Simulated scan of single mutants.
Amino acid sequence: MDDERDPVRIVVVDDDQLVRMALRLVLDGEPDLTVVAEAADGDAAITAVEQHRPDVVLMDVRMPGRDGISATDAILGRSAPPRVLVLTTFDSDDFVLGALRAGALGFVLKDTPPAQIVDAIRTVAAGDPALSPAATARLIAAATGPRSPEARRSVQAAAAGKLATLTARELDTARAIADGLGNAEIAARLHVSVATVKAHIGNVLGKLAVENRVQIALVVRDAED
């Protein structure tokens, strides 16, 4: 029996043609990855996903026309959606946060070394978040940064209401995720098995109505801001 898996199918979305060309050269050079389409804006990205059914969308956030946040939300709202990995610069934190709240599994910077971009795509394709601790800290800081008092109270109240639906152990698990811990580390902190941690995470995802660990962390930080 042939044990080789089909390559991860990727749609590259960026309004800069040179960026798209460079990414295609890098990704098509990997035996387990293949670029099946390119798109220059959010609308074209949605069309490409509908036509090619990729595994991963490498999504720019700032584009003319439909931006990456709106496109991410639309793509992830369809049945059996692909994973979305945000492609960004660090001067667009608000855009990145919007994409992560929409369900993107992580992000890479446009000046990231090619090998790390490849690793991030593989990680996201496997269903895991691709966020470095430093990058996560920056995003969390942006998420809890200066707001008007009214806006802060509204966001905090909404997030606190969501956390109130969790059991004590589920809340401990959510807070550990917000601290950047992996499943084994959470298990050690809570003195439970990894299987129990996974069960708690599943419950937390359902109760908070979120899609991934990044979104759990954002709810916790919003509530405790």
Rank of each mutant, 00 (worst) to 15 (best):
M63L: 13
M63P: 08
I69Q: 09
L76M: 14
G77D: 08
R78C: 11
S79H: 12
A80P: 05
A80H: 12
P81K: 02
P81E: 11
R83W: 04
V84C: 03
L85I: 02
V86K: 03
T88Y: 05
T89Q: 12
F90D: 11
F90V: 11
D91H: 04
S92A: 15
F95H: 12
G98F: 11
A99R: 03
L100I: 13
L100G: 01
R101D: 10
A102V: 01
G103E: 01
A104M: 02
G106A: 07
G106Q: 03
K110V: 12
A115H: 13
I117N: 00
I117P: 00
D119P: 08
I121C: 11
V124M: 02
V124C: 03
V124Y: 01
V124P: 00
A125E: 00
A125M: 02
A126C: 10
A126W: 05
P129V: 02
A130N: 10
L131A: 12
T136H: 13
R138S: 10
I140T: 10
S148V: 01
Q156I: 00
Q156G: 01
A160L: 04
A160W: 00
G161A: 12
G161N: 14
L163T: 05
L163K: 04
L166N: 04
T167K: 06
A168G: 06
T173D: 03
A174W: 00
A174S: 06
A174L: 01
R175A: 03
G180T: 12
G180W: 06
L181H: 13
R189S: 10
R189P: 00
L190Y: 08
V192F: 07
S193V: 05
V197H: 00
K198P: 00
I201H: 02
